[in-house]
Design a protein around this nucleic acid. Structure first.
Lengths: 87, 87
DNA sequence: ATAGTATTTAGATATTTGTCTAAATATACA
DNA sequence: TGTATATTTAGACAAATATCTAAATACTAT
């Protein structure tokens, strides 16, 4: 869970997730959406992958990234627990 | 929202939130629950306060900290949006 | 006033993080 | 086979972060 919070704690990474909500994209397509270098985006994608928030699938020359929202449930569960204050 | 994700991105701070779920506590009571120094906890409480995840109220010599879960809704909303993938 | 308790602020330090450029790897195609 | 394209890995560096001790502030009570 730590990895997920860590992954979410960056505006660029959150924006990547929002992009992938629309459709799956290749690393290059994602890079185009930002003013940040390819390697930096690659690093962000790696952190998102570690958190299992995205899935990477190789197709020939390209790598397609897609959202994996199952991890989000875990976070929501935790947040709901916090919201159910006892006093 | 950035501040909230930042505040949540630390195990100690998340544990503080879990403690405050049970009951309001003074800074000193919170410190007792950890092996970390008072000033460090004070710093964590400050970040939680900046994120508006906790509220601090002075009562004489003590400062009572309590949960404020209204900010959590904002995060949940964002997460739900991510979960509603288009494809 | 003075001493004691509660908490924060200041300043230092080691670690982590986000970014970059250059190089490495992998695939496509002519 | 050789060149172009897609992406990652390596290494460097500045900025942010978590922690500490020492000092400052604020309140209580003798």
């Amino acid at each position: 869970m730590n990895n997920v919070f860590k992954a979410l704690n960056d505006p660029t990474r959150r924006e990547i997730l929002e992009l992938l909500r629309e459709r799956d994209m290749t690393a290059g397509e994602i890079v185009e959406q930002f003013r940040i270098s390819g390697p930096s985006i690659s690093h962000h994608l790696d952190l998102l992958k570690q958190a299992k928030l995205v899935i990477a699938e190789k197709e020939g020359q390209y790598i397609y990234y897609s959202l994996n929202t199952t991890v989000v449930d875990e976070i929501m569960k935790w947040l709901l627990q916090i919201k159910s204050k006892k006093k």
